[in-house]
Design a protein around this nucleic acid. Sequence first.
DNA 1: TTACTCCTGGCC
DNA 2: GGCCAGGAGTAA
Length: 282
Amino acid sequence: MPELPEVETVRRGLAPRCTGRRIGRAEFRRGDILIVPEEAGDDPARWAAPFTGGRTIIRVGRQGKYLLLDMDGDAGWAVHLGMSGSMVVHAEDTPADQHTHVILHLDDGVEVHYRAPRRFGRWIAAPCGPALSAVQDRVGIDILDPTLDVDEFANRLGGSRATIKSRLMDQRLVAGLGNIYADEALFAAAVHPMCPASDLDVGQWATLLRCTRAVLHRALGNGGTTFSSYRDAAGRRGGHSDHLRVYGRESEDCLRCSGYVERIKVAGRSTHCCATCQRAPV
DNA sequence: TTACTCCTGGCC
DNA sequence: GGCCAGGAGTAA
């Protein structure tokens, strides 16, 4: 389940292989993952291929969970991996299975395969601007953006009685966290996931921001978390699964106190936390 | 704020 | 055979 560390790992793998390369041919093998301008009509894949082929990739960026492929001619793609997507660099003429929905054939023979078995991923076209312009209304400041300070973090997420976990996962407020790392961050900060966001005090906001970033950096250092399908740009699994401290550890001992990890539902998502050392809402 | 939808592989 | 996982959009 690609969240920020996984998407950033993919980006770091793709960038050196793709930046400055011309896309000789772009193969869009199915249209239903594409979000393109209305004038594309009912055959988005047919619109997307010439829009992409022949252009040069000038930057591979990321904001939150979106990969941003900027191309020359002021155009781009914001690519979301959904929960099972991968972007893998292959040699020329590598066979693709039925889950491979996009193949970019680069001018040096490299192929970039976008695979998304569960098809939750999307390619969102930016027809006349950088890739980010296609998604800027749905993705807020990246949680690792150094210009995001504690005050702004608290301003964005606080001011609502909604649970802190649902606020942390709202990509429009702060982008990058999904279900796994929201649980990990809240555990690290010893904040209960059901705590109303507006109840956090100044110290807790500071701790939460610091812990969230530490959790993400640690996961990045391990190449992300793989449970089943996630792969980096070289097709490798992530190594962080064994380092998770609370996610997926239902009824096991808490790693910080004498309590145990329980699994509850918060905002409709399965949530792992320690009811003993993560301060529960009053 | 909650519930449903999309989709498929993996598991019981 | 059915349920679960989950990001994000939408509907109730």
